[in-house]
Write a protein that binds this DNA or RNA. Structure first.
Lengths: 226, 226
DNA sequence: CAGGCTTGTTACAGTATTATTACAAAACGA
DNA sequence: TCGTTTTGTAATAATACTGTAACAAGCCTG
């Protein structure tokens, strides 16, 4: 396999680390090891495709480490937890800090490998969104949330901007009113689907000629297509 | 609370189904149940956000079902397996057919819910893999619900699209009017079987030369065959 | 090959869905 | 706070979709 996956093992049991390292390496993975959470944080963690974290470690626990990785480093690298503890609460904590899987010791190497592969397979399709989208003479800046057409600013409201962005990110696909509501309106607000229509109408008017790129189709919803 | 995820439970233990249905429904999920793999295949499975499959079932096993779903229907909907069996080999079979998680009975509802949420959360960032069916110069995009012939868009209504999809997914098999009604019309609406004929006629007209691939046979129903 | 049954097609009407407008409520900023 | 902007609702007209009925054409079966 040309691009080998890099996996970081964080566990303070050196024996187990060695076993894992040997076995996973022979599966074709590229392995690095850290013997504590602190040591792990000293590495540039964004290099790895997957982290295997022991929950029970001297010093920082695996959960704590995962939390830092998610919240402070803001990384979305997949994480699998290893733990000797079997209680349900641990499970839940694990998933709450964004674990991708969870294995209780003792586990078989084959099972671990299977789960690693499952997690890596999932991750393959994630797509990095561009921050600026250009469509002919129309530009959306997702960071600044601004739109220009022929370099002229077009002032869209928040909802209008988000709908336009969503349609464009799914260019060519019809999105139902419900899907649009789900994504753009906060969960606790209850509004009618007609709202989507109204906002689409406003949007169409504001973006001039591009308005006709937003197609509406009975039973399907809306779609951007140019 | 717009975001209801639709989950299909496939298990032949009715009691368990009921318990799961009740508990998951009260978590805000929208639940459907099938008591066998065969019954599950009669549903349009692309409607669901997640499948919970029992491994051990009378008739088709959960693994077999998953395999069909992945390979024949070409769906990438997340799957979680439920099983009483704990052997490692089962685990591995599960992951090989593209399972997203695996739970051994008995499991706690809370754990199941946590795992469901983990799987659904993951799915958010994953770009849906295109589900496109190509038949000579005709292309059906099941995600976009669009049809093109020689790269020209063919605008089908929902019913027309669904009928065409259903026929093509069961290419070579005659589907009775009743089967088509059951699958495509919602349960509470009562309509005559003649409706199927009418929609088939419209469909045939819209898809031009491919119209003649939809064969009708007295007493059998309709079948797509090219 | 005739009669009854099933199927294909068309036209029409009822229903559902969508676009647009105007106005009111809510949120926002100075 | 007040005035402005944004957002939601309701009403309406326009459009699209779907079901029914009617009839023609096909197909079984005796």
């Amino acid at each position: 396999m040309s691009n080998t996956y890099k996996i970081l093992i964080v566990d303070d049991e050196k024996d187990l680390c060695e076993i894992l390292q040997f076995n996973l390496a022979s599966e074709g993975f590229e392995i690095e090891v850290a013997y504590s959470g602190e040591e792990a944080l000293n590495k540039s963690l964004d290099r790895f495709d997957l982290l295997l974290l022991d929950v029970m470690m001297g010093g920082m626990s695996g959960f704590k480490l995962a939390d830092k990785i998610r919240k402070e480093l803001n990384l979305s690298v997949p994480i699998i937890f290893l733990t000797a503890r079997e209680t349900e609460n641990d499970m839940l904590t694990g998933f709450n800090v964004g674990a991708d899987d969870y294995l209780s010791k003792p586990f078989s190497i084959r099972e671990l490998v299977a789960r690693i592969k499952a997690v890596l397979r999932r991750g393959k399709n994630v797509e990095v969104k561009p921050k600026v989208i250009t469509i002919d003479s129309m530009e959306l800046d997702l960071n600044r949330k601004s739109v220009t057409i022929e370099n002229e600013a077009v002032l869209l409201t928040r909802k209008e901007f988000e709908i336009l962005t969503m349609l464009i990110l799914h260019k060519g696909k019809y999105l139902s009113r419900q899907e649009i509501l789900d994504r753009i309106w906060s969960d606790d607000v209850i509004v009618t689907e007609r709202n989507v229509d109204v906002n689409i109408a406003r949007l169409r008017k504001k973006i001039g000629a591009y308005g006709s790129c937003i197609k509406g189709r009975s039973g399907y919803g809306y779609c951007f297509e140019n």
